[in-house]
Design a protein around this nucleic acid. Structure first.
Length: 430
RNA sequence: UCCCCGGUAGCUCAAUAGGCAGAGCGGUUGGCUGUUAACCAAUAGGUUGGCGGUUCGAGUCCGUCCCGGGGAGCCA
């Protein structure tokens, strides 16, 4: 008998098939029995009628517990009463393992309990839907760059020096020396971009910050493109195209998952581009008008992100930040050297910053000066400085946080549900 | 790191003013031919997060520690 998956079941109407999976739930009415069988791709109801105690089918049915693994065989039948439109008329149950008493029921649970059982929580409908969307977002990102001639250049996770402040880095041993878990592949991207023109890296980033918010993970995934000879406007255009592409893919391919999450898709459908664009100088008075207490020269806090989120149905772009609050490698504006040619993309609906990027310094002397002013160890950056000696050119790129985009697509409140095993400030288990 | 909240049965929660620790779900047993978190009946299930204190008596009050949750700050 053919082993099939629930997501393909419609193709097997009125045929005998085999499904391998787990008991999502079961119920019995005396002479009619139902098993909701979950196989990883979907859930189908298997039904059996009768009350023949000699029939091993019924004895096996009775033995099943929640999340027991099993193989069911039977005929696929169209039935309007069944969710999904199809159910399986049971001919045979083969028990693979009887699950011990399952710690969670299909009823309500608190966040600490669910997080403690994250390895099992993944089996539930909503978590399944979120992670399907995540997989789609990642696939969309890879397709987007691969189809546009970008080369995937993996950057190291173990790095020899602090790229930014050491307080935000995880330190580990590298034989006899110290090493740090990468916060970003960007500096290495600048090297590969000079070798391949258009590159991207895609991997985990680690931050040892004691951030305890719904928008931060200690370990998160980031895609970072870098393009040689591209300026700030080029990188804004690229980021805009990427976001529109991701939304289109999720809407066209994961609509059923968005429905399972009760995500109102209208705000996603409304995102069109080009995205509204403000300079830092323009946006600060606007924020102050709307009640923000920030002063010129401050970075955005949570209240500012909320106001920015409400300005448009599209993501809102902020450019030309004061150089003092941005990273050392940001290219200053030619006309206003106190401003950096950086851009932040703020997602609508309160999902915060999803892209941060900009143009990098390509002038040797300027970069050396900025490294000195930032009190960074010159030796550690020698290779990075070299890039400005040998065929330097203007270049730009950005980083997009995968989990924040997935949160936004799914319309879920907390970023911890957008990755199978979130690393949080007070949680590293499971 | 700071502010706020919480920890009682496997889970979700009750327990007047300090006075016998309970219910629903889940488990088990039985019943029921269309259930979707079924329903009906019965039944088992407890070191009230740890330590110390006040009291005739502490789940409840006090101290302290631990573990979580919400928010702020921090945050290429």
């Amino acid at each position: 008998m053919k082993w099939v998956y629930v997501e393909d079941i419609a193709a097997y109407k009125d045929q005998d098939v085999e499904i391998r999976g787990w008991v999502y739930n079961k119920t019995s009415m005396g002479k009619v029995r139902f098993i909701l069988v979950r196989d990883g791709t979907g859930i189908i109801q298997a039904t059996a009628f009768g009350k023949d105690e000699a029939n091993p089918l019924f004895a096996r049915f009775d033995a099943l517990t929640q999340e027991s693994s099993l193989i069911v065989r039977g005929r696929v039948r169209e039935d309007k009463r069944a969710p999904g439109g199809y159910e399986l008329s049971l001919a045979e149950i083969e028990i693979v393992q009887i699950a011990q008493e399952y710690p969670s029921s299909p009823k309500e649970h608190t966040t600490p309990f669910l997080m403690e059982h994250r390895h099992l929580w993944l089996r539930s409908r909503k978590q399944h839907a979120v992670l399907q969307v995540r997989a789609e977002v990642i696939r969309a990102i890879r397709n987007f760059f691969d189809d546009r001639g970008f080369r995937l250049m993996d950057t190291p996770i173990l790095t020899p020096s602090a790229c930014e402040g050491t307080t935000t880095l995880f330190e580990t041993k590298y034989f006899d020396q110290a090493a740090y878990l990468s916060q970003s592949g960007q500096l290495y991207n600048e090297a590969t971009a000079a070798a391949f023109g258009k590159v991207y890296c895609f991997g985990p980033a680690f931050r040892a910050e004691k951030s305890k918010t719904r928008r931060h993970l200690i370990e998160f995934w980031m895609v970072e493109p870098e393009v040689a000879f591209a300026d700030l406007d080029d990188t804004i255009a690229l980021g805009t195209d990427l976001i529109l592409f991701i939304i289109e893919r999720v809407l066209s391919r994961r609509r059923a998952d968005l429905e399972a999450l009760e995500r109102d898709t209208k705000p996603l459908e409304a995102v069109a581009g080009p995205f509204p664009r403000y300079t830092y100088d323009d946006i600060v008075p606007k924020l102050q008008e709307k009640g923000s207490a920030m002063k010129y020269g401050d970075d955005f806090g949570a209240p500012e992100e909320t106001i920015l989120s409400g300005l448009s149905a599209d993501p809102v772009l902020i450019t030309h930040f004061p150089a003092a609050i941005k990273a050392f490698y940001m290219q200053p504006d030619a006309a206003r050297p106190d401003l950096a040619l950086g851009v932040d993309f703020m997602a609508p609906e309160g999902y915060g910053e999803i892209i941060g990027g900009g143009q990098r310094i390509h002038d040797l002397e300027l970069l050396e000066r900025r490294i000195r002013e930032s009190n960074l160890p010159r030796e550690a950056y020698q290779w990075y400085i070299d890039l400005r000696k040998y065929g330097s050119c203007p270049h730009s790129g950005f980083g997009l946080g995968v989990e924040r985009v997935v949160s936004w697509m799914c319309g879920i409140k907390h970023i911890r549900e957008t990755i199978p095993f979130p690393r949080l400030l007070y949680r590293i288990y499971p």
